[in-house]
Simulated scan of single mutants.
Amino acid sequence: MRANANVLADLYNRRPFSPLKGLMTSEAVALPRAALVGNPSDGYYGKTIAFTFRDFSARVTVDEVTGLPLPETPLLGAALEVFNSYCARMGSEVASDLAMLFESDIPYKLGLGGSSAIVIACLRALAGHSGYDLSPEVMADLALAAERDVLGIPAGLQDRVVQSIEGLVYMDFDRTLIEGRGFGEYVVLDPSELPLIYVAYMPDAAEGSEVTHSELRGRFEAGDPKVMSAIAEWKDLTDQVRELLDSGKGAAIGPCLDRNFAIRRELGLAGAGTIAMAEAARALGASANSAGSGGAIVGTYDGPEMFSQLVEALRQLGASVIAPSI
Score class of each variant (00 low, 15 high):
Arg124Tyr: 05
Pro191Ala: 05
Pro16Phe: 10
Ser308Gln: 14
Thr52Gln: 09
Tyr86Pro: 01
Leu8Pro: 01
Ala95Trp: 04
Gly77Leu: 03
Ala50His: 05
Glu207Leu: 14
Gly152Arg: 01
Pro203Gln: 11
Leu245Arg: 09
Glu27Trp: 09
Ile253Phe: 02
Leu168Pro: 10
Tyr86Cys: 07
Leu269His: 10
Leu134Phe: 01
Ser247Met: 08
Asp10Phe: 13
Pro324Ile: 14
Thr48Lys: 04
Gly131Asp: 01
Ser85Glu: 15
Arg217Ser: 13
Arg242Thr: 06
Pro304Lys: 12
Asp172Pro: 00
Val227Ser: 06
Asp258Met: 12
Val188His: 13
Asp63Lys: 09
Glu166Val: 10
Gly318Cys: 09
Gly152Ser: 07
Gly271Ser: 12
Glu64Ser: 13
Ala206Gly: 12
Ala252Asp: 14
Glu279Thr: 09
Val161Glu: 07
His213Arg: 01
Pro19Asn: 07
Leu76Trp: 04
Asp133His: 15
Ala127Trp: 00
Asn289Trp: 10
Leu36Asp: 04
Thr25Trp: 03
Pro16Thr: 06
Leu80Asp: 02
Tyr12Cys: 14
Val7Phe: 15
Thr238Met: 09
Ala146Pro: 02
Ser290Cys: 07
Pro255Tyr: 07
Val29Gln: 14
Arg124Asn: 07
Phe220Lys: 08
Asp190Lys: 08
Arg242Gly: 09
Val37Thr: 08
Ala206Ser: 08
Asp172Met: 07
Leu194Gly: 00
Glu215Val: 12
Ala323Gly: 14
Glu27Gly: 14
Val138Leu: 10
Glu193Cys: 14
Tyr45Thr: 00
Ala121Glu: 00
Gly318Asn: 01
Leu177Pro: 11
Ile120Gly: 07
Ser229Gln: 15
Leu31Ser: 04
Tyr45Gln: 08
Lys235Ala: 15
Val311Leu: 09
Asp149Asn: 10
Arg181Tyr: 13
Gly273Asn: 05
Tyr108Asn: 13
